[in-house]
Write a protein that binds this DNA or RNA. Sequence first.
DNA 1: CTGTTAGCGCATTCAT
DNA 2: ATGAATGCGCTAACAG
Lengths: 341, 341
Amino acid sequence: MSDSGVSSPTVRDVAALAGVSPMTVSRTMSGGRNVRPEVQERVREAAARLGYRPNESARNTRLRRPTGLIGVAVTNLGNPYYGQFALGVEDVAAQNNRHILIGNTGEDPERERQLFDDFAGRQVEGLIVVPAGNGQSALGDGRVGPGVPLVLATRAAAGVESDTVLVDDVRGARAGTASLLEDGHRRLAFLGDVSAIPTARRRFDGFRGALQEHGVDFDERLLCPVRDGESALGAVAELLTMDDPPTAFFSTNNRITVGALRAVWNFSRSNPERPVSALASFDDVELADLLGIPLTVMSHDPRALGAEAARMLFQRLAGEAPPEPRTVSMPVTVRQYGSRG
Amino acid sequence: MSDSGVSSPTVRDVAALAGVSPMTVSRTMSGGRNVRPEVQERVREAAARLGYRPNESARNTRLRRPTGLIGVAVTNLGNPYYGQFALGVEDVAAQNNRHILIGNTGEDPERERQLFDDFAGRQVEGLIVVPAGNGQSALGDGRVGPGVPLVLATRAAAGVESDTVLVDDVRGARAGTASLLEDGHRRLAFLGDVSAIPTARRRFDGFRGALQEHGVDFDERLLCPVRDGESALGAVAELLTMDDPPTAFFSTNNRITVGALRAVWNFSRSNPERPVSALASFDDVELADLLGIPLTVMSHDPRALGAEAARMLFQRLAGEAPPEPRTVSMPVTVRQYGSRG
DNA sequence: CTGTTAGCGCATTCAT
DNA sequence: ATGAATGCGCTAACAG
């Protein structure tokens, strides 16, 4: 157990103990060039005895070097999706000898702004942000300092011009919807908050596009602005008891999918005579393929997305990126599970 | 887009632009005591124009204040479990105005040591670590500097004396196993790497204890040292084709549970005449309750665990903890799902 | 090889 | 109310 409140030893403490000047300690700690081996020995011993560790930020300040810190802000670390995302970022950051400062916004733009400020004050070299809320994020006024690049991930933010990694939402949603239509579904419900979440909006565009291509109408009453599993469960349960219920659902994220799956599962248990509703889900959900519910999954790899965002950031830091902002779309693959008509 | 390579403006830059001394800028930025309002105005304007942000680490250095950074090392950020865990830590850290530096060890003790070193060099105020590998982690030599407390989470580490948050593994495993036994199961298999993972070891102790209490033998051939979903799937599939197969499985974590569930599901599809094997799972898995597989879940809240670890750390930082290391066990709740004989 | 001087960005102390 | 000097922990540049 360590006592709290004791401040760390410094070069001077080590120097005093070893009977040398601070400079000799400094030299020894950074390779030992031009220090007699025996003196190095004494210094190292003193350092070890005191538990001395060079203060990185003081070094960086003096050497006019950047901090080696990357700020990452996500909307919900607890979502497995963003865990994978963070893992991808961390991986690439580690490869580039950087560490990540991570913050959770909880979709709160105010908290996002605060994180942004704090990160900037800590002189992060760059930021990777999943914009909170409706895309009207506080990043809007470009408050990142000069030379501090920002990469947006997953969602774009209104008025913010910077490198962005998105998902190929429109194309993916179109393909997933087409799959439902090819299975004969004509009455589809859409689960997602189109007005509040930009991602949901783009997925809706793809959904809508596929319907139009196939000459199928969309009943606006089947547009459900749900945002989480709970509300999705309720909404789907309700839709299923309509006079003219949808035969298939389009879910815009993995939380919503889980709720929808539960609702469909519950319903088909109590109504075994009714055909099982189909579901198209953006993002994969573990074990969902075993439920016997016809499932079309439009998935992408959040870890790869995080890694890509980090790569874009480091490219820019290295000056290897063109001056104008770049947008990359991660590919979406469509797979089908479960029995179908 | 910001040009890379431009260094951030400093107090001096702002001072020059505002036509005052650096001191006036400093005072203005930290509240503005003893600065004429009109001068403050000029300073703020200059600061805004330059995009000036006080360098936090320089401030902290000068004010002899700690960095406000907490280091967190987990074994696998991509595992939803640790995502939740990290969220709990972040939450409490934010409440205490700290930020977290997060690193992924990937169960590699060498990487753990490296993170440890880096964090120490960055003068973190404290560390929260999920020890990597077999508990023979590199933390052993107590290399955290003086005054830098360490909290171990989820697993203990051999030879490391520090605050620790564990799960009530033994009691939980005992209760879950008892539940299987009460359902009539007598031939149980254990899925977990007892020799390599301390957590698995403790869960095995509880498992074993319950068997003994009920006077049930354990067939050592049913001890499977699996570590992930893949290997669990294979092992369970194989066990099910034995002459004298187990009727129930005990899984030591959520990855293993997913693999085991798949194996059981596959098997009972191709062998509908055979009774469905039961499963007791440490940690919950989303949607697992809908599979029709008799399931006993021994679960705890990883987010609460992370929050508790962070609280212990901050208590110690505040000098509100007794000198000797404390160990807290998070409670485990047992629930049952699915049809049972 | 080793020590002294100086300065990174900031803020306390002591002048004015 | 403002500024000059000084020092936090560290190291480049320059002595010697």
